[in-house]
C-alpha cells in the first residue's frame, strides 16, 4: 500500500472523433470514460430525463448527507439509519468544511491508500477514502432541496465551483470521495445507477443546454 495521498495522478488520453473522449485511469482498475454526445444531439426532453436521474443521485443520502448547505453539520439519513438525524458526536465541519476549527473529519474518517479496495466493510465504522474527508461547499446545498433548486445550483458556475458540465464530469471522475457514494460499504445503500451512468447523464444534460424542471424557456 502506498502512503497517504490527497490527490492521485491521472493518466489522461485525448482523442478527437465525433466527440472529445477523456479516459482517466484510476487505481483499482476503475475507469470512467468522459465522452460527451455530439453538439445538438440531445433534445431538451432527453436532457430533462437525464436531469431526473442526476437528481436521484444528488438527493440520495450518500450524496446529500454531506451537501448540507449553510449548515456545517453532516447528516445521517437513508435506509440504514432510520429517521434522518444530524451526524452524531456533535460534529461541526465549521467554515473550513473539514472540521479544522474543532475536530477534523479525518480524525475518524481516516485517509486510506488508493489501492485498498475493501477498506469499508465494517458496519457502523467511519467510511474512508483515498483523500481527505470533507463536507461539500456551502453553495452546493442538496439536503432537503427540490429538484429545481439543485438543478439551478448545479448549472450556475457562480454556485457550482465555476464549472461547465464537462468540468463537472471531470470533477466526478477525479474526486474520490464522490466515488465512495457508489461503493459505500458496510450496510449503506449506494447511490443509484453507476458512476459511469451518472457521468453520462451529466454530459447529456450539458449538451441539452442544462434544462431544469419548470424552466419557462430552454435551459
Amino acid at each position: 500500500m502506498s502512503k497517504m495521498l490527497l490527490h492521485k495522478g491521472l493518466v489522461v488520453t485525448l482523442s478527437l472523433s465525433s466527440a472529445i473522449v477523456f479516459t482517466v485511469a484510476m487505481a483499482a482498475d476503475e475507469k470512467v470514460e468522459i465522452s460527451p454526445p455530439a453538439a445538438g444531439s440531445v433534445s431538451k426532453a432527453q436532457g430533462l430525463n437525464a436531469w431526473s436521474r442526476i437528481f436521484q443521485v444528488a438527493s440520495h443520502p450518500r450524496c446529500a448527507n454531506c451537501h448540507t448547505g449553510p449548515s456545517d453539520r453532516p447528516m445521517w439519513s437513508g435506509p440504514s439509519y432510520g429517521k434522518p438525524r444530524v451526524h452524531g458526536m456533535n460534529i461541526q465541519a465549521g467554515n473550513s468544511r473539514i472540521g479544522a476549527e474543532t475536530i477534523l473529519c479525518s480524525t475518524c474518517h481516516t485517509t486510506k491508500s488508493d489501492d485498498w479496495d475493501n477498506a469499508n466493510t465494517t458496519k457502523h465504522a467511519a467510511p474512508r477514502v483515498a483523500m481527505s474527508w470533507a463536507l461539500a461547499p456551502a453553495n452546493a446545498h442538496w439536503f432537503g432541496r427540490t429538484t429545481r433548486q439543485i438543478c439551478e445550483q448545479l448549472r450556475d458556475p457562480e454556485t457550482n465551483g465555476g464549472r461547465d458540465t464537462l468540468e463537472i464530469a471531470e470533477h466526478l471522475n477525479h474526486d474520490l470521495i464522490l466515488h465512495w457514494a457508489w461503493s459505500p460499504g458496510g450496510n449503506r445503500e449506494p447511490a443509484p445507477y453507476s458512476l459511469q451512468e451518472h457521468v453520462n447523464d451529466i454530459l447529456a444534460w450539458g449538451v441539452a443546454g442544462t434544462p431544469c424542471p419548470e424552466d419557462q424557456s430552454g435551459g
Binding site: M1, M4, T110
Partner: peptide, 17 residues
C-alpha cells in the same frame, strides 16, 4: 500533531507520519 482514532488508520497508510 493531530488527533486520530488509531483503530481506524491502517498502519500501511501511515507513511512517514
Amino acid at each position: 500533531g493531530y488527533a486520530l482514532r488509531s483503530c481506524q488508520l491502517a498502519v500501511g497508510d501511515l507513511g512517514d507520519s
